[in-house]
Each structure stands twice: as structure tokens, then as C-alpha cells.
């Protein structure tokens, strides 16, 4: 067993720990790992080029940027905020938990690319979360805005990850089935996908609780930092 290619992993860990430019870290790690495995320059370049092309679907999110950019230019995010602020009983918790559930169900139906950070979180979900939070605690400062936006992105991740594996034709299910098939164990994709349900439910419960806790803590933080007169206004 040749353990030298593990140097590439060491490069990744050290690079991220030292907060060097991730692109450079990843490029160097690939080259180090390949050279340590005794790969020639010609093979290395062909492998890099081939894998890069195979993975180009990951940049498809850039297709949304002209639409999102244009609409934002004309006030999409401001409008999203106003719209949410008009709902009387909407809180941050209710809004984000509803989004979490919706995202999970859609992912279970195989529609995991329907929403996402570029398609829905930046233009809609993040500003709406900020507005829902501001409705209950008043105007957010920059630190609080970033916390709420980060939580919105995290909610999208959790909803997507722990929904998609329940979908039959999802890559992960097919990968599991394919792996076993290669080793002489025949499995029905449905049998694999159904076992993702308990985790999906657990993920929903855990993250929904965390959203509720986040909102409670945020209220407390805002109450502590805010003078009494403003607090009265915010609660009125």
C-alpha cells in the first residue's frame, strides 16, 4: 500500500487551517497527491482536464445570475422584505420551519434543484427571513442580519440533504445500489430509499428546534442591547 498520496490530504487540511486561498490549496493538493502516487505529468494533466469537464454541471447555478441580478437591481429583495412584513402572525421560526419542510418534501420528490442558494435563498428566502425577524425584534444590525441570512442558507442545506435520499432515482440511492450490485448483493432501490426516512424526520425535528431556539436567543440579545424606548416601539 502506497501511503504517500495522503500528502494531498495533509495539504488540504493545512491549507484550510491556515486560511490560504482555497482555489490554490485545492490545486496544489491535487498535484501533490498525483505526483506522490508516481503519476506522470501527461497523465496528471489529462486526469485534471477530464475530471474538470465531468464535473461542469456544478456551475449551472450561474445560469440564474442574470435573472436574479436584474430583478435585484429593480428591487426584488426590498419587495420580498415588504411582502413578508405585511403578514401579521409570521415569525422567523414559522417562516423558516415551513421552508425547511417544503424543501424536504420537494427533494423527496426528486426536485432538489428547484430551490437553492442562488435560485431561492439569496433573492427570496434570506431577505424574507430578515423581514420576518425584524417584524418581531425591530431593525436588525449587521451582525444579526448575517446570522439570520446564514441560518436561512443552513436551513436550505439541511432540507435538501435530508430529503433527497428518500427519492428513488437520486444519485446516492443508485450509487448504493450499484456498489452492492458490483459485490453480488442485489437490492431494490426502494428498499434503500425508505431507510432514509427516519433520518429525514430526525433532521426536520432537530433543525426546527434549533430555529426556534435561535429566535428566542435573538430576541434576548436584542432586548439586552436596545434602550427601553425603542423596545416599546418594537413591541407595539
Amino acid at each position: 500500500m502506497n501511503y504517500w498520496p495522503l500528502l494531498g490530504v495533509a495539504v488540504v487540511v493545512a491549507g484550510f487551517a491556515l486560511r490560504r486561498n482555497p482555489v490554490l490549496v485545492v490545486t496544489v493538493a491535487g498535484v501533490v497527491s498525483a505526483l506522490a502516487a508516481g503519476m506522470g505529468i501527461g497523465d496528471l494533466l489529462a486526469l485534471l482536464g477530464r475530471s474538470f469537464i465531468d464535473n461542469r454541471a456544478l456551475l449551472l447555478l450561474a445560469m440564474t445570475l442574470p435573472v436574479v441580478g436584474l430583478l435585484e437591481r429593480f428591487g426584488l429583495r426590498e419587495r420580498a422584505r415588504e411582502w413578508i412584513a405585511g403578514f401579521r402572525n409570521l415569525t422567523l421560526t414559522r417562516f423558516l420551519v415551513a421552508y425547511l419542510g417544503l424543501r424536504q418534501v420537494l427533494s423527496m420528490l426528486g426536485l432538489y434543484d428547484l430551490a437553492g442558494h442562488a435560485q431561492t435563498v439569496r433573492p427570496l428566502v434570506a431577505p424574507m427571513s430578515e423581514a420576518a425577524a425584524a417584524r418581531t425584534v425591530g431593525e436588525l444590525d449587521e451582525d444579526e442580519r448575517e446570522r439570520v441570512a446564514a441560518l436561512a442558507a443552513a436551513t436550505d442545506n439541511v432540507g435538501r440533504f435530508f430529503g433527497e435520499d428518500v427519492f428513488l432515482a437520486f444519485g446516492a440511492v443508485l450509487l448504493i445500489q450499484g456498489f452492492y450490485a458490483q459485490h453480488g448483493i442485489a437490492l431494490d432501490p426502494l428498499a434503500i430509499a425508505l431507510w432514509a426516512l427516519p433520518t429525514a424526520i430526525a433532521a426536520f425535528v432537530i433543525h426546527a428546534l434549533r430555529i426556534a431556539i435561535f429566535e428566542r436567543r435573538m430576541r434576548r440579545r436584542m432586548r439586552d442591547t436596545r434602550p427601553a424606548t425603542e423596545r416599546v416601539n418594537a413591541e407595539a
Partner: peptide
């Protein structure tokens, strides 16, 4: 914007150079 593609490429390189088997 480039990072996801590049990381997936690194994954392929790791697989091809036997990093996984070593671990």
C-alpha cells in the same frame, strides 16, 4: 464560483491516486 468544480476534480484525483484505499 470555480471552487465546487475544482473540489470535485480533486475528489477524482484522490480516487485515482488511491487516497481512499490508503485511509
Amino acid at each position: 464560483a470555480l471552487l465546487p468544480m475544482l473540489l470535485a476534480t480533486l475528489g477524482s484525483v484522490f480516487a485515482a491516486t488511491g487516497v481512499g484505499n490508503a485511509i
